[in-house]
Design a protein around this nucleic acid. Structure first.
Lengths: 396, 396
DNA sequence: GCTGTTTTGTAAAGCTCGAAGCGTATGTGG
DNA sequence: CCACATACGCTTCGAGCTTTACAAAACAGC
């Protein structure tokens, strides 16, 4: 009737909260004994004991066989979170490839598969390749779609709340492709679609160069330039999912920045447009004057937009990622110098440590976050795949 | 010893959580009967009853005298949150004035006082005026500093985590003035110092034009141009407190934008530089061609930076505030047109509804938030003024 | 003015959960 | 084989919430 201002908690809820607390402690430092869990959660040993046994019978935790016990005294039972209770899929649908990863609830990658796709492939062909990769990856792992608890797909371009690439995408014919609906037929679990750049940002914070920071600006530097934002530890999408699309503003010079590299004088005619940048970076490394000038011009332009992000958000760290980050050795210091000149408070500037898998890793992480959110809000009844709340019927 | 991963809750903590839950319900819909509170919190009537009585004896709530009871049945006791249990102060230290507001815990303004200050006053004189206003306001309200639970002071310029204006401020000699230390001698409660622009943003969300939105970009348009950001309902300061200082980047044209108004041809020599903008707005309203052109140029420049913010954050709403927002009728539509051209997803654009008190109101809100945070994290023992955790000794 | 109705206040019983304490089990080291 | 250290598991106790039941207070209608 009346909306709940704030839910008051009764005893069963208390037990649930403490169970979740134990699960968190279990995941943070596995494997753990009852005594350790008791210390970490602040609960008494007997309380943790019954909770841990309940987790085992529910399937959330498992007992480790007693191994080498260095300490004197009765050896403690060692519990561990049963990460294999569920799995998630992260997919990167890029211009040239489709990469799928399957991981367990702790993020351990169980299976990965990568197919190449022609850059000019249409949406139907690309979707078919997506299905093929996901299917093959699942069967290689000996799983069915019902074993999957969440799916995330990363695509290029801003993605709206419904999971559609509504604005712009370089993938041919990809506007308004409804991936949620496309995958919804086979997966009953939550399906998330997200911008590749945002996912790469998430990945850098998960197991990349920004794992220690909570306020992160990620700059994707490549043939396309983009940005991803983590503020207060949370990936920000914006009200309509279009956060980080600063590159669309021509005053920040991100649109034309890669042209400095592509149009650099001295690039041999035998080098294709996609490889021109790599050639320029190599030439610059070997001392070629024109190449160095091109790189410097590129960095100068990149720095304008980066400075706009830094001045707007004042992050702790800026991550320099994307395809060009392989040549970060050439550009990191010039970029720092430019930012020093343009910004009020200088953030740390670091190069990405993740390679081409960053987007798929971020997709994995987003799916894991979704699972955790549901776990910690809905409570842990039994480890089964969650189901989407509503399936908005919409044609792809 | 070991850091707590997540605190497990025991029974006393449960009661505390439920008490807070009742307090929240009480504040959301005052006055409230036990039955209403029971429905809103989901707790049983007897549980709410003992909690409510406890709140009354602690001083957090009070009983309302039974008034007209339209319904049949035994009249219910009506409880209300005792907002006068504590008070907070919000101060705006501006270029021309010092404005102090005192409010109770519900944000009802109890007392306000405004002193004018010369724009070229030095830091000592300005601090003296600040003390005078705060003292007078307190004594007029019949209070002492120990009655105050939190103090917030708004100043121009980026404020770092320690509460110092470390970067730039137009207030003469104000660099590195340590307001926290200055006020720390007389107030034992938390003292917050914050950028005026951020506080105005907070005020617009509290009781201004953005009360329905959680993702807000506030643009302060005046002789100085600034920005404040609310993302996911929370005011964002950035890692070093310098978020929103996009204006420092010359490519976004905010620095020179007001010059279009000041240097507009046709401004009589009798009009001072501070009043030139107002003259131009009036002239534009009356159809003066040169004035209209100046206003349009100004809006065009303002829109570049605003578009950078919008493209970066994709907010739900952009608030057009600051001194020039009095002339929003002239500029709102042109600003919308420019943004439509520059942005991917168009946010709502609204004019500020708060006048010159916005900064002080925001300061009040920040102080109230601080009180609430402490309340809801530390629990409610008895309504007394909180004390600062650590007083970092630093000379002003 | 009395009675019935309706809603609130209050008391008692029961249940669940966590804390504390204590005896028991199971290892290591001498 | 014995002493010791640590972990397990049982019992007792207390706190807090819910349910149920009953008393109290006001209004409506006769």
């Amino acid at each position: 009737m009346t909306e709940l201002v704030t839910a008051g908690a009764d005893l069963p809820r208390l037990r649930e909260l403490n169970s979740l607390s134990v699960v968190r402690a279990l995941r943070a430092h596995p494997p753990a004994t009852v005594t350790e869990l008791s210390q970490r959660t602040g609960l008494s040993r007997p309380a943790v004991d019954v909770i841990a046994q309940g987790l085992v019978t529910d399937g959330w935790a498992s007992l480790l066989e007693p191994g080498a016990n260095s300490v004197v005294g009765r050896p403690a039972r060692r519990y561990q979170f049963r990460a294999t209770a569920g799995h998630v899929i992260g997919v990167d649908v890029g211009a040239h490839k489709v990469l799928a990863l399957i991981a367990d609830l702790d993020g351990n990658i169980v299976r990965s598969l990568r197919h190449s796709v022609a850059a000019d492939a249409g949406p139907a062909a690309r979707l078919a390749e997506l299905d093929a990769v996901v299917n093959a990856c699942l069967s290689e792992a000996g799983m069915t779609p019902s074993d999957i608890w969440a799916v995330t797909v990363g695509v290029t371009g801003a993605v709206d709340a419904a999971g559609r690439t509504s604005f712009f995408t370089p993938l041919p014919g990809w506007q308004n492709v409804d991936l949620t609906a496309h995958l919804g037929g086979r997966f009953a679990c939550p399906i998330l679609v997200e911008n590749d750049c945002k996912l790469a940002t998430l990945a850098e914070r998960w197991k990349g160069a920004a794992s220690d920071a909570n306020d992160i600006v990620y700059v994707l530097a490549g043939m396309r330039t983009g940005a991803g934002l983590i503020i207060d530890g949370i990936l920000r999408r914006g009200f309509g999912g279009a956060a980080g699309e600063l590159g669309a503003l021509k005053q920040v010079r991100w649109l034309d920045a890669p042209a400095h590299l592509q149009n650099c004088p001295g690039v041999p005619g035998t080098v294709g447009p996609d490889d021109a940048a790599a050639w320029v970076f190599n030439a610059a490394r070997e001392g070629d004057k024109a190449a160095r000038r091109a790189v410097n011009r590129y960095v100068k332009d990149l720095a304008v937009g980066t400075a706009a992000l830094v001045l707007t958000l004042d992050p702790q760290v800026v991550i320099f990622g994307g395809g060009f980050s392989r040549s970060a050795d050439l550009m990191l210091d010039p970029l720092r110098r430019e930012l020093e000149r343009l910004c009020l408070r200088m953030p740390e500037v670091r190069a990405s440590t993740l390679g081409a898998d960053a987007v798929a890793l971020g997709a994995l992480k987003l799916a894991l976050n979704e699972v955790d959110d549901r776990l910690f809000s809905a409570g842990l009844s039994a480890p089964v795949a969650p189901r989407r709340a509503a399936t908005p019927a919409s044609s792809g």
